[in-house]
Simulated assay, not measured.
Amino acid sequence: MRITALAALITFVIDQLSKWAVVQVMDLKTVGQIDVLPPYLVFHMAWNRGANFGLLSGHGDLLRWGWVVLAVAISAGILIWVRREPMSWLGKLSAGLLIGGALGNAVDRIAYGAVADFLNMSCCGFSNPYSFNIADIMIFAGAFGLILFTGERKNRA
């Protein structure tokens, strides 16, 4: 459980510090875009009011608070799962990454009314129109890790 809590805390803090630095200190909310290493890495401000890639973004405040409640409920469910089921340290770490990322994006929805996405990466002639953030990366890595590192190990006979 300590691994999960520590991973969640570190993920949450890194996510929120990165958003504060880029959105507030670098003033990306006003500037709109900062070329860091174009086209491979560009800070491009995008306020995500919906789900992944802005899906369901036109449903206002009800959906905003629904996403916050869902993030907290999923995080609580994962914590209960970690406490009840024996997991490897990689499973516990993965759970922490997912929880920290989900709560980081939930805090954005409370503070800004939307998730602050700013990372944009393109390569090799492909121009990516979407932005994401550290929390999104950790949610994906955590979910993938939970798939890989949890569950019963079946003997192959």
Rank of each mutant, 00 (worst) to 15 (best):
M1V: 13
M1I: 13
R2G: 14
I3M: 12
I3N: 05
A5G: 14
L9P: 12
L9D: 09
I10W: 00
I10L: 15
T11D: 04
F12W: 07
F12G: 01
Q16M: 02
Q16P: 01
L17I: 12
W20C: 00
W20I: 01
W20R: 00
A21P: 03
A21C: 13
V22A: 07
Q24S: 13
D27G: 06
L28M: 01
L28S: 02
V31R: 13
G32R: 01
V36M: 10
V36I: 14
L37N: 04
P39K: 05
Y40R: 07
L41F: 10
V42H: 03
H44C: 08
M45Y: 14
M45D: 10
W47G: 12
N48R: 05
R49N: 10
R49G: 10
G50V: 07
G50S: 08
N52W: 10
F53T: 09
F53M: 14
G54K: 04
G54H: 06
G54F: 04
S57D: 13
G60Y: 07
G60P: 12
G60W: 08
D61I: 14
L63D: 05
W65G: 12
W65C: 14
G66H: 09
A71Q: 03
V72F: 13
A73K: 04
A73V: 14
I74F: 11
I74N: 05
I74K: 12
G77F: 10
R84V: 04
R84G: 10
E85F: 04
P86I: 01
M87I: 08
M87P: 03
G91F: 07
G91E: 05
G91D: 09
G91Y: 11
L93R: 05
S94G: 13
S94A: 15
A95G: 15
G96Y: 04
G96H: 02
G96P: 05
G96Q: 03
L98P: 03
L98E: 08
G100N: 00
G101T: 07
A102K: 03
L103C: 05
L103E: 02
A106F: 04
V107F: 08
V107L: 15
R109E: 00
A111V: 15
G113H: 01
A114I: 02
A114Y: 09
V115F: 00
D117F: 00
F118G: 05
N120K: 09
S122A: 09
S122C: 04
C123P: 04
F126A: 05
S127Y: 10
N128F: 08
N128E: 08
N128R: 06
P129I: 08
S131P: 06
F132R: 09
N133H: 11
I134A: 13
A135W: 07
M138V: 06
A141K: 11
A143Y: 02
A143G: 14
F144A: 15
G145Q: 10
G145C: 10
L146H: 10
L146S: 03
L148P: 03
L148G: 02
E152A: 03
E152Q: 09
E152M: 02
R153H: 06
K154L: 01
R156L: 13
R156E: 03
A157N: 13
A157M: 11
